[in-house]
Amino acid sequence: MILELDDVGVTFTGGPPWARTKVYAMKGVSLTLAEGEILGLVGESGSGKTTTSTVALGLRRPTSGSALFEGKPFPKRRKALAGRMQAVLQHPQWSLNPRMRVGHCVAEPLVVLGGTTKDEVTERVLATLGQVGLDASFAQRYPHQLSGGQRQRVSIARALVTRPPFVVFDEAVSALDVSVQAQILNLVKDLRAEFSFAALFISHDIGAVRYVADRVAVMRHGEVVETAPSAVFFGTPEHEYSRQLVEAL
């Protein structure tokens, strides 16, 4: 298993000590992700999808329960995970540092990982840009010279440049035009076929999830209400809420 979340709970506390307010962002969430599998995570805004992704990426320690990555708890030092996991995040306009050339953005995970010479890095960056459908001239451009779809391609290139076994796509296509969405989804599918990474594909767009995911998990109010293989889920959804989602498609 690449990722195992077992009975994970995340609670946010707020307010002064005499009037504590608690928000349960995740309650008893159990999810597993096998090598090379794409798990689609759907749910409305505020259902705990993004919190789940931060736990899966080891950015947030669960309040209760356990999170294992490749069978081990998350290490204290982030550097130990360098190159093993990556993410493609929500906002195309902020996914890339506006003061860095695209080439440097894509190279960053490789440089942080170390062990590669400058020429190897350049070669890998250009190759990866090619794999996401961008030619070598893009390496010299700045993010503001790119369209939203191109930026998301660059984000995907940056995520895949170290060939990680696990990638999180957090609303990676939600901010894009429908036609561009389809291109990016096809790209994700093609790249998965090529590099066979496991992915947590988070989206409120159930159509997008249907297109790429092998299995689907539905979240509502911080809980997972149903997990099923794609074919089963979209054929005969069990839970009432899942049924509503599928019908709305």
């Binding site: 950015l59 550097k79 130990a80 360098a82 990556q86 995040l89 929500q90 942080v112 990982l113 940056r158």
Partner: peptide, 23 residues
């Protein structure tokens, strides 16, 4: 997101400071 991405990539604080925050 680019700072989050850098953190996920395993970048240390000196790199985040010099490459992402200060510019």
């Amino acid at each position: 997101d680019y700072v989050t991405s850098a953190v996920i990539s395993g970048a240390g604080w000196p790199r985040i400071l010099v490459r992402h925050l200060l510019p």
